[in-house]
Design a protein around this nucleic acid. Structure first.
Length: 486
RNA sequence: GUCUCGUUCGUCUAGCGGUUUAGGACGCCGCCCUCUCAAGGCGGAGAUCACGGGUUCGAAUCCCGUACGAGACGCCA
């Protein structure tokens, strides 16, 4: 049997880091096992589901390169043999209703007429009496007459699933091993809302079965839903899939990663200048590892090496610092052409280097490639190439220009460089070194003032390449202008 | 409160009864390289393997408790 797994997000907000990681593990598992990765949109929450959120999910997955083999496509088309892949559409087709009716007919589900207010009251009471705040089964054994009476009053109802009250539900989780729940701790959960829509737990079971999922890989936060879902599979006469519960991602404070920890949306990381391949590599390592604890993976290597056995049971703290390092590493591996392509949106957004020749811009961007941790910092680091005047860093001026030899050095180099025909890296360096020797100065006493005079900064790219790319006119102009600071 | 799960350097982790003076990575510190900053190379500090019992000739590794943490307990998913 071919392996089929799915990512089933609910479109009620941005696709966040945790969701992307769940998608990733499903994706990798499918790739590794030669199975199919399916996208299903769980939009049975009529109030919170939005079109924008669906778009955010598409965008996030596509950015990360997690292509799905089946599911709805951003252009409105559908791929796969089990459409539709939107649960709301499936609900409208009566797919869930059919199984609800079946359970009702078999006495495995019942109508519950309790109002939200009554439910809340029961929960309060349970809390006060130190009992678990679960539905106590008030409508479970209503007679036909009682039901008729309640309906005559115009009462709305939900459908609840009859959970077994004895025995236990045991399953073998691929990551956590055997997990057991006493059935007495289960409760009669709602499977159909008053609106007629199914609830998550029910729709999920029906679709996972109908779509022939073999493995359910999802967050740990679903582990307590699992015994209930298993009971529903059994009541419907279906075989349950194999479950694997991924550990959570935590923030620095040790609690589940959420808005509280800042903007965790995937698109925000794109905006911050992270490379999708770095993000994926980092996320893969959160709660998963190879036996040799490999850190960096070449393209395609994760798909090849992924093994669900390497998944961690305990939660992992999301570490932005390590992500930054990894992102820097991926940036360093880019060709200068590719680096420019990736950097372009950020450069454009910063509004610098307009109309600059592509080839020249590529050279300039590549000049400090080893320094970038994110694409977003690129504009700031290269902007001095394109400004009309140098913006001097005060500390740099004090440190480098306020010396006895700075003025002399600059005047000397204005003279020497002014006479140069061949304004290229090698000649530039040679000229500077010779001049230093002749004047009895150390190389640094020349280099540093020149650097600050043209860039305003004390740290920057390798000096002579920088001068070459800047060009003779600009270099001389800037050195002369800098004289007044000495 | 109830249920479930978890606990190895600050963080991500390797480890699956003896090869462990517990290995790697990020971060941190130092040195080297060097026109600055990075990058790179080399080295260092950093974990009584949560705690307490057991099993065993031998335990981070197996078992039982305790503590702490997290998650779940919705007509949300």
């Amino acid at each position: 049997m071919t392996i089929r797994v799915r990512f089933a997000p609910s479109p009620t907000g941005h696709l966040h880091i945790g969701g992307l990681r769940t998608a990733l593990f499903n994706y990798l598992f499918a790739k590794k096992e030669g199975g199919a990765f399916i996208l299903r949109i769980e939009d049975t929450d009529e109030e919170r589901s939005t079109r924008e959120s669906v778009d955010a999910i598409y965008q996030g997955l596509m950015w990360a390169g997690l292509t799905w083999d089946e599911g709805p496509m951003p252009d409105g088309s559908v791929k796969g043999n089990f459409p539709p892949y939107y649960q709301a559409q499936r609900a409208d087709m009566g797919i869930y209703k059919k199984y609800i009716d079946q359970l009702l007919a078999e006495g495995k589900a019942y109508k519950c007429y309790c109002t939200p207010e009554e439910l809340e009251e029961m929960r309060q009471k349970a809390h006060a009496e130190h009992r678990p705040p679960r539905y106590p089964g008030k409508c479970r054994n209503l007679t036909k007459e009682q039901q008729a009476e309640l309906e005559a009053q115009g009462r709305k109802y939900v459908i609840r699933f009859k959970m077994p009250t004895e025995g236990e539900t045991v399953f073998n989780d691929l990551i956590r091993g055997e997990v057991r729940f006493a059935n007495r701790d289960l409760y009669d959960l709602v499977i159909q809302k008053t609106s007629g829509y199914p609830t998550y737990n029910f729709a999920c079971v029906v679709d996972d079965h109908l779509m022939e999922m073999t493995h359910i890989i999802r967050g740990d936060d679903h582990i307590s839903n699992t015994p209930a879902q298993i009971q529903m599979y059994r009541a419907l006469g279906w075989k349950e899939p194999i479950f694997a519960h991924l550990s959570m991602i935590h923030g620095p404070d040790g609690t589940k990663l959420s808005k509280r920890h800042g903007d965790t949306s995937v698109i925000e990381y794109k905006r911050q200048g992270f490379l999708p391949e770095a993000m994926i590599n980092y996320l893969a390592l959160l709660g998963w590892s190879t036996p040799d604890s490999q850190q960096l993976f070449a393209p395609g290597e994760l798909e090849e090496k992924f093994d669900i056995k390497g998944c961690q049971k305990s939660p992992a703290v999301f570490d932005t610092v390590k992500l930054m390092w990894m992102n820097g590493d991926y940036i360093r591996q880019l060709s200068s052409k590719e680096l420019l392509n990736r950097a372009k949106p950020f450069i454009e957004e910063a509004g610098i280097a307009k109309g600059v020749d592509e080839g020249r811009l590529e050279q300039i961007v590549a000049l400090e490639q080893e320094k970038y941790k994110t694409l977003r910092e690129i504009p700031d680091l290269i902007s001095f190439f394109f400004t009309a005047e140098v913006k001097f860093d005060e500390a740099a001026v004090n440190k480098v220009f306020k010396t006895e030899t700075a003025k002399k050095a600059l005047e000397l180099m204005i003279d020497k460089y002014g006479a140069l025909q061949d304004f290229t890296e090698q000649t530039l360096e040679q000229t500077a070194r010779t001049a230093a020797k002749e004047a009895g100065l150390k190389a640094g006493q020349i280099f540093h003032p020149v650097r600050v005079s043209v860039s305003g900064r004390t740290n920057g790219p390798t000096l002579f390449k920088m001068l070459e790319y800047m060009g003779k006119d600009m270099v001389l102009k800037r050195m002369r202008a800098a004289l007044r600071y000495c």
